Amino acid sequence: MAGLPGPFLCGALLGYLCLSGLAVEVKVSTEPLSTPVGKTAELTCTYSTSVGDSFALEWSFVQPGKPISESHPILYFTNGHLYPTGSKSKRVTLLQNPPTRGVATLKLTDIHPSDTGTYLCQVNNPPDFYTNGLGLINLTVLVPPSNPSCSQNGQTTVGGSTALRCSSSEGAPRPVYNWVRLGSSPTPSPGSMVQDEVSGQLILTNLSLTSSGTYRCVATNQMGSASCELTLSVTEPSQGRVAGALIGVLLGVLLLSVTAFSLIKFQKERGKNPKETYGGSDLREDAVAPGISEHTSRADSSKGLLERPSSASTVTTNKSKLPMVV
């Protein structure tokens, strides 16, 4: 029993402090807040504490996907004065000024798409005990889809395939896309037309002449819709191109055939008539015998090739007239 006074006194002291208001508790709505672009948003923050001279209130902002540690202030209240700050300073204020009666609602005017993110309401009032001095509010700025851009990629001839694409640069929530065909022309068969509402792509396969026409893409979200149109013209393969390609192939084959025939004929002619070759010891018919002057040789050759001597032994040279010594 001797040990009871200690815990009993601590519990009593804690209860006294809580009853005296020596605690900070911030409350905000847990439901996400959404506001159309260009309108005014009111972010309600309530708190309970015994406001004193050290009371301070801060509103801060962090972009989507970033940690709270990267938040930056947009409004202060301290020492009885309000201090808007940052890029939103001209558009933020408090509905309750001074915010010393338990409510500190932030008012943000002329909402921009970049205002989408998390807003932090933080109360600091030392020496009050901190229990839950921070509240988070998620704000989504609603933006209608901007005018989408339509484009086409792929073959536009019969039997080919093509892809129609559609995309909006702005829109929150993210728009969905739906392609429709305009006019009274028959709609392509379901198997040849597949679309993705998220990416905005329409794939057309096994094109036919009846696939030609005007296609409209509609981008839609809860703020509105916008559309663009694209005209698709499916044509048959050009006959002139086919004929030209066929003629080119035939000319190529003919050229190869002529070249091969000429080579074969040249090889055969070369085998029948081989080139004459002369050895160093062979006597050419037009050679000049030793002892015969060049003038005589020219004279003999002028008489024609028909008057050739009957044999080499009949040729008389100067050297043959010399006496032979035995």
Score class of each variant (00 low, 15 high):
69 S>L: 04
47 Y>P: 08
254 L>V: 11
176 V>P: 00
238 S>L: 04
74 I>M: 07
114 S>C: 03
192 S>M: 08
62 V>A: 12
268 K>M: 11
45 C>K: 01
139 L>G: 01
84 P>G: 00
49 T>D: 11
257 S>R: 05
203 I>A: 12
255 L>V: 07
312 A>G: 10
58 E>G: 06
196 D>P: 04
141 V>G: 07
266 F>P: 00
32 P>S: 08
224 G>F: 04
285 E>M: 12
121 C>W: 00
53 D>Q: 09
111 I>W: 00
224 G>A: 06
30 T>M: 00
239 Q>F: 10
263 L>E: 01
250 L>I: 13
67 P>T: 03
190 P>H: 02
310 S>E: 07
271 G>M: 14
312 A>V: 09
282 D>M: 14
141 V>C: 08
192 S>F: 09
295 H>C: 00
163 A>R: 15
323 P>G: 02
229 E>N: 10
241 R>H: 02
196 D>H: 07
182 L>N: 01
98 P>K: 04
127 P>V: 02
130 Y>R: 13
256 L>K: 02
212 S>C: 05
59 W>F: 10
307 E>M: 06
265 K>Y: 11
320 S>R: 09
135 G>E: 03
223 M>D: 03
257 S>W: 11
282 D>A: 15
141 V>P: 09
93 T>L: 00
118 T>C: 02
18 C>A: 15
87 S>T: 11
35 T>H: 04
190 P>L: 05
203 I>L: 15
128 D>K: 05
268 K>T: 05
73 P>I: 05
223 M>A: 10
29 S>M: 03
29 S>L: 08
66 K>G: 00
87 S>I: 10
128 D>C: 14
235 T>L: 12
167 S>N: 08
279 G>D: 06
238 S>M: 01
271 G>Q: 15
34 S>F: 06
245 A>M: 10
233 S>F: 06
319 K>D: 11
27 K>L: 13
201 Q>L: 12
280 G>R: 11
290 P>S: 13
249 V>R: 10
285 E>A: 14
124 N>K: 14
154 G>C: 08
204 L>Q: 06
208 S>E: 11
255 L>F: 12
21 G>E: 03
142 L>G: 04
144 P>V: 02
193 M>Y: 04
235 T>E: 13
242 V>H: 05
108 L>F: 00
190 P>C: 04
305 L>F: 06
104 A>C: 08
294 E>I: 08
16 Y>I: 07
92 V>S: 02
219 A>G: 08
254 L>A: 15
82 L>C: 01
299 A>C: 11
194 V>D: 09
300 D>C: 13
14 L>R: 02
23 A>D: 09
270 R>N: 11
125 N>E: 02
72 H>I: 08
49 T>L: 10
233 S>M: 08
222 Q>L: 14
207 L>Y: 05
134 L>C: 01
122 Q>I: 09
154 G>T: 07
156 T>Y: 03
155 Q>I: 07
285 E>R: 12
115 D>E: 04
159 G>M: 08
87 S>M: 07
200 G>W: 07
30 T>G: 09
170 E>N: 08
162 T>Y: 07
